Lab assay of single mutants.
Amino acid sequence: IDVRFTVNGLDVTVRVRTEEIAERVKELAKNGVDWREIQRIAEELNK
C-alpha cells in the first residue's frame, strides 16, 4: 500500500504492508512528524 502525504511542501510516498500501518503513517504525517522519521518508523513497522 502506498501512502502519500505532504510535509513542509514535500510530497512523500511511503510503501507499507498493511492498512493499519498506513493509518499510523497518516497520523504521524498529520502531527507534523519529520518525513525521515516517518520513513524510519514505517520501515520498522513493515518488518
Rank of each mutant, 00 (worst) to 15 (best):
V33Y: 09
L10Y: 12
V25L: 14
L10V: 14
R15G: 05
D2S: 05
V33G: 05
E19V: 14
V14Y: 01
I1K: 04
L45M: 15
V7H: 11
W35R: 05
G32S: 08
N31E: 13
E44S: 10
I1V: 10
R36Q: 14
R24S: 08
N31W: 06
K47A: 15
V16L: 03
E27Q: 12
D11Y: 04
K26I: 15
E20N: 09
D34S: 11
V7R: 04
E44Y: 06
F5N: 03
I38S: 00
I41L: 10
R36L: 15
E27Y: 04
V3F: 03
W35M: 13
L45T: 02
I21A: 09
E37I: 08
V16D: 00
V7S: 15
A22Q: 04
T6D: 14
E19W: 07
L45V: 03
E27K: 08
I21L: 06
N31F: 07
Q39R: 10
E37N: 06
V33F: 11
F5A: 06
A42V: 13
G32E: 09
A29C: 07
L45F: 07
E37A: 04
N31K: 13
D11R: 05
I1Y: 10
V12K: 05
E43D: 13
V3D: 02
K30T: 13
V25M: 08
R4L: 08
L28E: 03
E37T: 09
D2F: 07
E44V: 09
D34G: 07
V12R: 04
R17N: 14
E44M: 09
V25Y: 00
G9F: 03
D11P: 11
N46K: 01
R4W: 12
V14F: 04
E37H: 03
V16S: 02
V14P: 00
L10Q: 14
G32T: 05
L45R: 02
V16R: 00
A29V: 15
G9P: 00
T13E: 09
V14L: 13
E23S: 11
I1F: 13
N46M: 04
A29E: 06
V14H: 01
I21H: 10
G9R: 01
T18R: 02
L10H: 14
E37K: 06
D2I: 07
G32K: 08
Q39C: 10
N46R: 02
E43G: 09
N46D: 08
F5I: 15
E43F: 03
N46S: 07
W35P: 12
I38F: 01
D34P: 08
G9M: 03
K47Y: 08
A22S: 06
L28N: 01
N31D: 14
V12G: 02
L45H: 05
R24Q: 11
T18F: 03
I41M: 09
W35L: 15
K47P: 04
N31V: 10
D11Q: 13
E44D: 12
G9I: 01
V33R: 07
E19Y: 06
E43A: 11
E43M: 08
L28S: 03
E44P: 01
E37S: 05
K30D: 13
V14E: 00
D34W: 03
E20W: 07
V7G: 09
R17P: 09
T13Y: 04
L28G: 01
D34C: 07
E37L: 05
D34K: 06
V7T: 10
A42Y: 05
N8F: 01
E43K: 10
T18E: 02
K30G: 09
R17L: 15
E19S: 12
Q39A: 12
E27W: 04
E37Y: 04
D2M: 06
V33C: 08
F5R: 02
G9Q: 04
T18Y: 03
R4D: 14
E20V: 11
L28T: 01
E23T: 13
E23C: 09
T18S: 12
N31L: 12
E19R: 08
K26M: 13
E23R: 12
V14G: 00
E23Y: 05
D11G: 07
R4K: 15
I21K: 01
I38H: 00
V3T: 02
V3R: 01
L45D: 04
R15Q: 12
G9A: 03
D11L: 14
K47M: 14
L10N: 11
I41F: 10
V7M: 06
K30L: 11
I41G: 01
G32M: 10
E27I: 09
F5D: 03
K26W: 04
N46W: 05
V25N: 00
I1T: 04
R36W: 13
D34E: 11
I38A: 01
E23M: 11
K47T: 12
A42F: 04
E20R: 08
N8Q: 10
Q39N: 09
T13P: 01
V12Q: 06
V33K: 08
E23A: 12
T13R: 05
K47E: 12
Q39V: 15
V12D: 01
R15C: 10
T13L: 07
E23V: 14
E37D: 12
V25F: 01
E23W: 04
K26P: 00
A29L: 13
N31P: 02
K26S: 09
E43L: 07
V16G: 01
E44H: 13
T6V: 15
R24T: 14
R24K: 14
Q39H: 08
K26E: 07
I21S: 04
R4S: 14
V3E: 02
K47C: 11
K47S: 15
F5W: 06
G32D: 08
K26L: 14
A22E: 05
T13Q: 08
E23F: 08
A22K: 06
I1L: 09
N8S: 08
T18Q: 02
V25R: 00
N46Q: 03
D11W: 08
N46G: 08
L10R: 09
K30Y: 09
W35E: 06
E44R: 08
T6M: 13
I21Y: 04
N8V: 04
T18L: 02
R15I: 11
I1P: 02
E20Y: 06
L45P: 02
Q39L: 15
V16N: 00
R17S: 13
E44K: 08
A22R: 05
R4Q: 14
D34Y: 05
A42R: 01
V16K: 00
T6A: 12
V3I: 12
V7Q: 15
A22T: 01
D11S: 09
N8T: 04
E44F: 06
R4C: 11
E43C: 12
E23D: 12
E19I: 14
R17K: 15
V12S: 02
E19D: 11
G9H: 04
F5P: 01
A29S: 06
D2R: 03
A42G: 02
R24G: 03
K26D: 03
V12P: 00
